[in-house]
């Protein structure tokens, strides 16, 4: 078989095997481990020994989501830079000018987010 196809086959096999390995290990550990009798507070979540008050799924500050949005933008732009970097050696100064423009736009975006206070952890 062609080697690139083999490589992708291996990637697929790794996903399945990894998942199966987790199931197997947890199953074996369940076979080996003792089952102790249930007492009322054995299954309470461990919050330093005090009884949990209210629901565990509490609200979160909106700051996390601002960072998440920024991350999506910047991560994708970074991925765009990779094909450019691979082709970098083959093309002249033109490729550099092009990317400086791209990075300048990226930097302007970051500067704007910074100025608007999106990067302040509150």
């Amino acid at each position: 078989m062609e080697s690139a196809a083999m490589d992708h086959l291996a990637v697929g096999a790794f996903v399945l095997f990894g998942a199966a390995f987790v199931v197997l290990v947890v199953w074996v550990s369940n076979l080996l481990s003792p089952k102790s009798a249930n007492s009322p507070d054995r299954l309470e979540p461990y919050e330093c020994g005090s009884e949990p008050i209210g629901p565990s799924w509490v609200q979160f500050r909106v700051g996390y989501y601002v960072y998440a949005l920024l991350f999506v933008v910047f991560d994708i732009e970074t991925v765009f830079l990779y094909p450019w970097a691979v082709a970098f050696g083959n093309i002249g100064v033109f490729i550099l000018v092009e990317m400086v423009v791209f990075i300048a736009i990226l930097a302007a975006g970051l500067g704007y987010a910074w100025k608007e206070g999106a990067l302040r952890w509150r």
């Binding site: 996903v15 987790v22 550990s29 369940n30 089952k35 054995r42 299954l43 309470e44 979540p45 461990y46």
Partner: peptide, 24 residues
Amino acid sequence: TKEDLTPRLADKALFFLAPMIVFV
């Protein structure tokens, strides 16, 4: 050989899925 506990308030399916998503 330790006992595998699932806490009372846990989301059972995700509680099992999470180690898999970390490990794979």
